[in-house]
């Protein structure tokens, strides 16, 4: 570590001629104030997000308040579309699948991902191979992973049935089990991503803490429980936040694996169905706005739990 700081100072010393040439850059760059710089730095991100995200949100909000027949606007509908959505059985069915899917898959992904992160963080020979292996499921595109698992669970060729000696057990063709296969595929595919987010947190825990705990005679379980977990709290919450909101909007995997049959239709699939297949953009937009509000509410809970001081350190207080 002292080595790092010294190379850094060395680096800046070496760079100083270049820095001098920088000073001859246009005057407005030289004297730009920090506040102006902050606005300048935020501008590109805000612009892109307003164009691609904020505009469609407002568009959906307006659409959801209008009545449509065969894509033709019929007039203002107030909250009729919302009432229609909330009183339809399909919505509650999709909501319950989405909820079950989210809780189960995020829970499993967190546990497995934490295990992966601890393994990846450990120094040992062949670490590169281990890390790359763990990351492989994550880099396979979701559509492919979905098709792969669907083929493996399918009756023909029946690879998983063959392995488990289950004969012609129809995983994808009955309710309950179909949801289970989608969850298994998602856990396999996404646990490495949770691991990566957690690993970033593990890396920031100074190794001195473990060493002094070792000197004090703490076992590895104690070190995990009293050092790793508390210090990992921000990374855990971030990983759970991003995985939860992603899982709540799951689309690709059930679409590819079951097409939404046998109680595996997610909220996003329902939205897609209303917006693209059933020509009623009003109801579709009401559905997506409801989904958004649900995800937003859960997101807010997480952001509260994360707390600004964990992100910004002491400065923000």
């Amino acid at each position: 570590m002292p080595n790092d700081t010294s190379t850094m100072h060395g680096g800046s010393a070496r760079r100083s001629p270049e820095a001098n040439s920088r000073l001859r850059a246009p005057a407005r760059w030289r004297g730009i104030s920090e506040t102006a710089l902050a606005r300048l730095f935020l501008a590109p991100s805000i612009t892109v997000m307003v164009l691609v995200v904020v505009f469609p949100i407002l568009y959906a909000l307006v659409t959801s308040l209008n009545a449509y027949t065969r894509r033709q606007r019929e007039g203002f509908a107030g909250l009729d579309n919302y009432v229609e959505v909330l009183s339809s059985g399909v919505f509650w069915q999709a909501l319950s699948f989405t909820a079950v899917f989210t809780v189960t898959s995020v829970g499993l992904e967190f546990i497995i991902g934490l295990g992966f992160a601890l393994i990846m963080n450990r120094a040992l020979r062949g670490r590169g191979i281990v890390r790359a292996t763990i990351l492989i499921p994550w880099i396979i595109p979701t559509v492919m992973a979905g098709q792969m698992w669907a083929f493996m669970f399918n009756i023909t060729p029946g690879s998983i049935n063959g392995l488990l000696g289950l004969g012609d057990f129809n995983w994808l063709g009955q309710s309950g089990w179909a949801a289970g296969t989608v969850i298994i595929a998602d856990v396999w595919k996404t646990a490495p991503f949770a691991a990566l987010l957690l690993l970033a947190g593990l890396q920031t825990i100074p190794s001195e803490m473990y060493e002094s705990a070792k000197v004090d005679g703490a076992t590895s379980i104690q070190r995990f429980w009293y050092i790793t977990l508390p210090l990992l709290r921000p990374a855990i919450l971030v990983a759970l936040l991003f995985r939860t909101v992603d899982a709540l909007r799951v689309y690709d995997l059930p679409e590819v694996m079951t097409g939404g049959a046998f109680g595996t239709e997610s909220l996003s699939m329902l939205v897609q169905q209303y917006i693209v297949e059933t020509p009623d953009p009003g109801v579709g937009s009401a559905l997506s706005t409801l989904t958004f509000m649900l995800v937003l509410a859960i997101g807010v809970i997480f952001v509260r739990a994360i707390g600004s001081h964990l992100v910004f350190g002491e400065r923000s207080r």
Binding site: L42, S45, M49, V52, V53, V54, F55, P56, I57, Y59, A60, L241, V245, R249, Y251, L267, S268, M269, V271, Q272, I275, V276, P281, G284, S285, L287, S288, T289, T291, F292, V295, L296, G299, V300, V303, S308, V311, F312, S316
Partner: peptide, 23 residues
């Protein structure tokens, strides 16, 4: 600053499916 960060996060929570038609 917290508001900015929350705003960025909130905007990302909209289901992508419903961004499709307007986009």
């Amino acid at each position: 600053r917290v508001l900015w960060l929350s705003g960025v996060l909130a905007a990302s929570l909209f289901p992508p499916v419903s961004l499709v038609p307007p986009l």
